[in-house]
């Protein structure tokens, strides 16, 4: 009955979330925020932490009460749990990291409708015990974070020549005629970058869409 905390099965849950069924490149969930908050690395990191917390937290809560939720109103119940967690994150950000909160603007609130959260609740937490659900939420959050941070790094370096606000491209480059790629901070750059990352990830993992 009792299972080791990190049994083979549980390790598979983690590996699936991070790599094999990565929420962004495989399940095609949560793309909106992956594109919108990644112009600066700092915002991307904060957003990743927020989403991972909400996914893992709501997975645990829903998994604990999964046997008491009437199936007809489960979406409302899920939305309420998720909103409560998102409100607490939003208030924390406003209190301690106001500049990041301003930069993320509506996207903190949009974690509520982030498909990763709802998708994992529906697909996993409704049918699995709390610890497994927690791992699943954590792993999917990590998979999302990995992509987000990667996009954040590329967009910030090439778009504004900085990393976490520090200048990384030496002034001599600019003197030699190097210019920041303005497209990176705009919407099209995000689309191109994510498209390329999906291409690379799928070439390695071997997943093909029919």
């Amino acid at each position: 009955m009792s299972e080791a905390l990190l049994s083979t099965k549980n390790k598979k849950i983690i590996k699936d979330g991070v790599w094999d069924t990565n929420p962004i490149t495989f399940q095609i969930l949560g793309i909106c925020s992956a594109l919108a908050v990644t112009t600066q690395l700092k915002a991307a990191i904060v957003m990743s932490l927020g989403l991972t917390f909400v996914t893992a937290g709501s997975n645990v809560v829903i998994s604990l009460i999964r046997n008491f939720i009437p199936p007809q109103i489960r979406i409302i119940v899920q939305l309420t749990v998720v909103s409560a967690l998102v409100i607490s994150i939003d208030q924390l950000l406003r209190a301690y990291m106001f500049d990041v909160s301003k930069q993320l603007s509506v996207f903190v609130g949009l974690i509520i409708t982030n498909c990763i959260v709802m998708g994992r609740l529906e697909a996993f937490a409704m049918g699995n015990p709390p610890w497994k659900s927690f791992l699943d939420g954590l792993a999917n959050g990590a998979g999302y974070s990995a992509i987000l941070i990667l996009i954040g790094i590329v967009r910030e370096i090439f778009g504004s020549g900085t990393l976490l606000g520090h200048h990384v491209i030496p002034a001599s480059f600019y003197a030699a005629g190097y210019v920041n790629n303005g497209m990176m901070v705009l919407a099209p750059g995000a689309f191109f970058l994510l498209g390329t990352i999906v291409w690379i990830q799928r070439s390695i993992s071997g997943y093909k869409e029919s």
Binding site: W199, I200, E209
Partner: peptide, 12 residues
Amino acid sequence: PAPLRGLGITML
């Protein structure tokens, strides 16, 4: 190219 089909090309 197969890995680009679907999501990848849609993004581009």
